Simulated assay, not measured.
Amino acid sequence: MGKFYLGRVSYNGRNYHGWQKQKDLPTVQETLFNTIRSIYEFGRIDVKATSRTDSGVHAFSQVVKMLIPRRVDAPEMQKLLNDALPSDIYIHQLERINKSFKVTHLSQFKEYLYFFSLKKQSGMPFVGHLESERAISLELMKECARHYIGLHHFEAFQYKSDTSGGFKRKILDSRITAAHEIFPQCFNASSEVYCFHIKGEGFLKQMVRILFGTMVKVGSGELSLQELSEWLKPPLERNSEILPDTTNRPGFIAPASGLFLYHIQYPELRIGEETRRLVDEKNFLNLFPEMELWKNTGESETQDQSCSFPIEVRS
């Protein structure tokens, strides 16, 4: 009889078409499944995750429930899998779990990070550099982030309309932080790299990337904070004098390469902030080897892989 394990899995999403299995395309779920199958030729295998990240999105701490064909001590299973997995996927925590544990329904909150720089080139493949004909105000972007906190109507901040779960979502925290304050061993103050850090009870499809795109438009002056406040209301409650045109989204969809699934919290799973920080720093260097060079010299050999997302600023 198979046994269930719960793992916290990190991955560099650069080479994968998202988490969920797709026909003829490499995904993280399929890679984990095939790795388990390479160890156990027979028996039922199942792999499910809390969050189905999109193509190119990374994860520090994806939570994955795995059905393994036979019972094995968790540390032994963790070593077997990590030895067999490609270097851009790593399991840094594994434990036995009851079959009844619902990995997709019981999470208390999720946290995401979006890395960006106001420099023309960041020198890192996961840090987006903003391009605009207008100056972008970091202070306005910070104020925009604070507007997201609370219970709001996020219908305009999703890729495709899905009414099955409603549009209201509660954001517990939203802020911009210098990357070196979160990862002091990986960044220095002179890097001028920032993180959009958002924590919420749930998110709509591509919501975080659109929220970040909206922040850029606020920072460039294309969208006012007053207009943003109207976008966060249900359509019938919006002030048409402040927001006369609602045919488009308030923000663009930022590239996936800057987004990280940072943390998922369950009542049953506890991991200290200090432990999580150290794990995250180790993950950075494991998943992005070029960070070691950048950390020591401030340069990178992969500048051509930096994501860039120019925005059109209306006159």
Results as ranks from 00 to 15, higher is better:
residue 284 F to I: 14
residue 239 N to C: 12
residue 151 L to M: 08
residue 113 L to S: 01
residue 4 F to G: 00
residue 9 V to F: 03
residue 264 I to Y: 02
residue 164 S to G: 00
residue 235 P to Y: 09
residue 85 L to I: 15
residue 291 M to W: 14
residue 262 Y to P: 02
residue 290 E to C: 09
residue 267 P to A: 07
residue 311 I to A: 02
residue 310 P to C: 15
residue 122 S to R: 09
residue 176 I to N: 00
residue 119 K to M: 06
residue 50 T to S: 14
residue 200 G to C: 08
residue 90 Y to Q: 03
residue 15 N to K: 11
residue 16 Y to K: 05
residue 222 E to H: 03
residue 13 G to T: 02
residue 260 F to I: 07
residue 223 L to H: 05
residue 154 F to I: 06
residue 156 A to F: 11
residue 227 E to R: 02
residue 143 E to N: 08
residue 205 K to P: 00
residue 104 T to D: 11
residue 98 N to A: 01
residue 10 S to G: 05
residue 69 P to S: 02
residue 122 S to L: 13
residue 272 G to F: 15
residue 91 I to L: 10
residue 80 L to F: 10
residue 12 N to A: 04
residue 281 E to D: 12
residue 82 N to R: 06
residue 295 K to T: 08
residue 287 L to C: 06
residue 205 K to E: 02
residue 275 T to N: 09
residue 194 Y to L: 07
residue 35 T to K: 00
residue 68 I to M: 13
residue 138 L to D: 00
residue 168 K to G: 01
residue 104 T to W: 12
residue 184 P to Q: 13
residue 284 F to W: 14
residue 26 P to E: 13
residue 80 L to P: 03
residue 108 Q to G: 03
residue 167 F to Q: 04
residue 27 T to C: 09
residue 187 F to S: 07
residue 224 S to A: 12
residue 111 E to W: 00
residue 44 R to C: 08
residue 143 E to H: 04
residue 185 Q to S: 04
residue 231 W to L: 03
residue 307 C to S: 09
residue 207 M to T: 05
residue 269 L to F: 03
residue 27 T to I: 13
residue 232 L to S: 00
residue 198 I to T: 05
residue 198 I to G: 01
residue 92 H to P: 08
residue 298 G to W: 11
residue 133 E to G: 07
residue 86 P to F: 10
residue 81 L to N: 13
residue 241 E to R: 13
residue 182 I to Q: 03
residue 196 F to M: 06
residue 70 R to A: 04
residue 296 N to I: 15
residue 61 S to E: 00
residue 52 R to N: 15
residue 79 K to P: 01
residue 199 K to S: 04
residue 266 Y to E: 02
residue 193 V to I: 09
residue 299 E to Q: 15
residue 76 E to W: 05
residue 310 P to K: 14
residue 105 H to T: 05
residue 75 P to Q: 01
residue 34 N to P: 03
residue 243 L to A: 07
residue 151 L to S: 05
residue 56 G to W: 10
residue 4 F to S: 00
residue 25 L to W: 11
residue 49 A to L: 07
residue 196 F to P: 02
residue 93 Q to S: 08
residue 172 L to V: 09
residue 189 A to D: 14
residue 218 V to A: 02
residue 305 Q to N: 12
residue 153 H to A: 03
residue 315 S to A: 12
residue 292 E to D: 06
residue 10 S to F: 08
residue 250 P to L: 10
residue 99 K to R: 14
residue 158 Q to M: 11
residue 20 Q to C: 14
residue 98 N to K: 01
residue 277 R to G: 14
residue 207 M to D: 02
residue 134 R to I: 01
residue 125 P to S: 15
residue 251 G to H: 01
residue 23 K to P: 12
residue 295 K to L: 09
residue 204 L to R: 01
residue 304 D to F: 15
residue 2 G to M: 14
residue 200 G to H: 04
residue 125 P to M: 15
residue 35 T to G: 01
residue 92 H to M: 11
residue 237 E to T: 05
residue 62 Q to R: 11
residue 57 V to P: 02
residue 121 Q to N: 12
residue 20 Q to N: 12
residue 65 K to L: 13
residue 93 Q to G: 07
residue 258 G to D: 07
residue 50 T to G: 14
residue 47 V to N: 08
residue 158 Q to V: 11
residue 77 M to V: 10
residue 234 P to V: 10
